Simulated scan of single mutants.
Amino acid sequence: MKIEKEFDELPIPNSAKEHSYTAFNVNEYSHIKIGKDSKENPSLLIFLPNQKDNFKVSKYKLYNLKITHNLVCEVITKNKREEHVFSLISFSGDDIELKKYFIRICEILIPTLGAQPDKNKITVTVNKFIELFKALKEPPQKTLQGLWTELFLIHQSNNPKKLIKAWHTMPEEKYDFSSEKLRIEVKSSSTGTRVHYFSLEQLNPPSNCKLFVVSILVNVLSGGISIEELVNDISKKLSDDTELIEKLNFITYSTIGSELSKIKNICFDYEAAVESLKIYDSEAIPSIQDIPSNIFEVKFKCSLQNIEPSSETISSLVNNFM
């Protein structure tokens, strides 16, 4: 991460003033800086040239974040000292991993602010910071294995933009990827056998929709590919589509929750996943029939070992997404 590297290279501010930061400008965003305070913690400094955009609420603090508006700060950029009024989103705490996380979130959300940030854009960005840090206090919303296989499918796709647009925004949604007339559900197994959990409702998509199940066998591998590496590589493939990059990262980090440290420590065998990937038409998967109407949430395990896979490929499925 370029921003993380530049932040690490910033010196500690040498000033007697309370609100002093060494800082650097972020690419073409002349009104936005990343700063380092006397405790070596990062801040996102947002300059508001229009005083009419000043905030009534001056500051608040939660989830390792400190939000301060209308604050006069001394900013030292390449030995040049200036004082301006800023809105600040600051990290507070001693956790190195959380500090890196904060810097990454800055990199993701800065495009949301744009070259001319205003009060509304700052408010939206602050709320996203709060939501992403709040997620770190919650247990994971699904297994790391499940998240890895969904990211793996996006990474394997010839058109990751289409898949991310179709990707569920909440893990509890019925299907992993949805378009108007197509659903894709990703199932994984680490046992070496193609046995997966299904819900009866899941195997019964709307009458005008086709459902395909992507089955992947996964293995933990110390020299494999991590979730963080998949996200970074997919982000590169998205080029300058900042909205999709934001969605990719937002879903990933909000899903991981309190297991943030495992995003780069738990790795899976990428090549083995490629070789094992098979696609099944849901109509070929055995299900349970004639369930009484007063019985709900029926779930079961099903082996796909002896079921003929579909001739569909990831590319052909993705091409059918809107």
Rank of each mutant, 00 (worst) to 15 (best):
E97D: 14
L217N: 07
F268I: 03
I288T: 00
Q116V: 12
K128V: 06
L136M: 14
F268E: 09
P42Q: 12
F212D: 00
I46M: 12
G224D: 07
H155R: 12
D118A: 03
T125A: 02
S254K: 06
R104P: 01
L244C: 06
P111H: 01
N70A: 08
Y101H: 09
D281C: 04
L62N: 11
T143M: 13
F300P: 00
F91I: 01
H84L: 12
I251G: 04
Q289G: 06
I76S: 00
N319C: 12
E229G: 06
F177H: 01
I164D: 00
L44W: 00
E297Y: 15
S92A: 09
S222D: 11
T242P: 02
S258H: 05
S239T: 11
E246D: 13
L153W: 00
P309N: 02
S190L: 13
D233T: 15
L244S: 01
E180H: 14
I3A: 10
S190H: 11
I103Q: 04
I288M: 09
P111R: 04
I12W: 03
K128P: 02
I96L: 14
I288A: 04
E283R: 15
F177E: 00
L217M: 08
L153G: 02
A166E: 00
D118S: 06
T143D: 09
I96E: 14
M170H: 14
A115H: 11
S287Q: 10
T193W: 08
L244F: 08
L147Y: 03
F7L: 02
G35Y: 01
K80M: 10
I32Y: 04
E18S: 12
E131Q: 14
E74T: 12
G257E: 01
E297F: 14
F86H: 13
N306G: 14
N41G: 07
K161S: 15
S276V: 00
L238D: 01
N127H: 07
K247H: 10
E246W: 06
N70K: 02
N265Y: 06
K2V: 15
F152Q: 02
Q116G: 07
Q141T: 07
D94K: 15
I76H: 01
A284P: 05
I184K: 01
S303A: 10
V195R: 15
Y60Q: 13
L244H: 04
V220N: 07
Y280A: 06
F86W: 08
I216Q: 00
K162N: 03
E283M: 08
D118Y: 05
K56F: 09
Y270W: 13
N159W: 02
G192T: 08
L277K: 09
K301I: 09
K237Q: 10
N64Y: 05
W167I: 04
S199A: 10
F177A: 06
E173Y: 15
Y197I: 11
E308G: 11
F300N: 05
H84C: 11
A272F: 12
K247S: 05
K36M: 07
E297C: 08
